[in-house]
């Protein structure tokens, strides 16, 4: 309630800022900074790309031993590579736009520098979340897009009846945005907890560990009947699909392209939209709740 009043007062004093232009300024400033330390930028781009190559190498190794992950799941090599490319696209975009900011946010709370952000006549969450753009992350996005096109091409030429329709091309970017929003919401909520905890390295790492579940096709969470893996896997799948929907962040867009005919797709896709809206709203509420508890460091 408090911040509603503050916002109204702010609007009386300052006109509503042009968020698009502000974001472009952030992006331009970050680019200028990245280009100032050009060799650092190049090393960062190359090292994140090599991380991707290492992962790709790992999966190539796996596919040298088996031709499908799981029994009758449909995740053959190139379908899985579509999935892998989607993981990379979602994650690299989160890394480019949000990760440096979430890290900075915890630091701002600890040092008291958040005061300066609160004073600015702009939505605090917007300012905190998008202030820095880590341009070197886009190298991975580019490579992932190439891998995606290559894998889809392979599927198209080698798998009978594999087609890509315009609707898939429209829905794919839409669900990528949903996926990014889900992962971002979790990240900003976790870093906002530093208001209460002071030091929250563990909670921030928690984001990596939770989103780790989203990096694999949801079919792997299961097991032979009678095995404990079956119910644990089922529980994990439900929890990370419906409670904290990180599993949908990559699975929904990837299935849309790689396994468009899967009967579960429709319900998952509908739930993903719902999950995105709820995740974002809850994280925003949580964020402002945290700001209300924020006491500056007094320096």
């Amino acid at each position: 309630m408090n911040e509603v009043q503050t916002d109204t007062t702010r609007e009386q004093i300052h006109p509503r800022p042009d968020y698009g232009r502000v974001f472009l300024t952030f992006a331009r400033n970050s680019l200028v900074r990245d280009m100032t330390f050009r060799s650092n930028f190049i090393i960062e781009t190359i090292s994140s790309l090599s991380w991707m190559f290492m992962n790709l190498g790992f999966y190539l190794l796996i596919f040298s031993y088996t031709n499908v992950i799981g029994v009758a799941t449909g995740w053959t090599q190139y379908q899985f590579f579509v999935f892998f490319a989607t993981v990379a696209i979602v994650n690299s975009l989160v890394q480019t736009f949000f990760m440096p900011n979430a890290q900075e946010f915890s630091e701002m709370i600890r040092t008291g520098n958040l005061d300066f952000a609160l004073l600015k006549p702009i939505d605090t969450q917007f300012l905190i979340s998008l202030q820095k753009v880590n341009w070197s992350g886009l190298g991975n996005t580019g490579f992932a897009l190439l891998l995606l096109v290559f894998s889809l091409g392979k599927l198209y030429s080698e798998q009978a009846g594999f087609r890509i329709y315009p609707i898939q091309m429209i829905l794919y970017p839409f669900y990528i945005v949903c996926g990014i929003t889900i992962l971002y919401s979790l990240m900003i909520a976790l870093s906002a907890t530093s208001v209460w905890l002071g030091r929250n390295q563990s909670l921030y790492n928690f984001w990596f560990y939770i989103t780790n579940f989203s990096r694999y096709p949801m079919e792997i969470y299961g097991g032979p009947s009678g095995d404990a893996r079956r119910w644990i896997g089922q529980s994990l799948k439900s929890f990370f699909s419906y409670c904290i929907p990180v599993l949908l962040a990559v699975n929904v867009p990837a299935r849309l392209l790689a396994k468009p005919l899967d009967p579960n797709n429709l319900s998952l896709a509908l739930y993903a939209v719902f999950g995105t809206v709820v995740s974002f709203s809850v994280s925003r509420m949580f964020f402002y709740r945290a700001l209300r508890s924020y006491r500056s460091t007094g320096s």
Partner: peptide, 24 residues
């Protein structure tokens, strides 16, 4: 908290390799 969380990736490995070994 950090230690316990560090085991979470093992959980995904258990499931990933479980699926891989279903065909091997």
């Amino acid at each position: 908290l950090g230690t316990l969380m560090r085991f979470l990736p093992i959980v995904t490995q258990i499931f990933l390799w479980g699926s891989i070994f279903q065909n091997v």
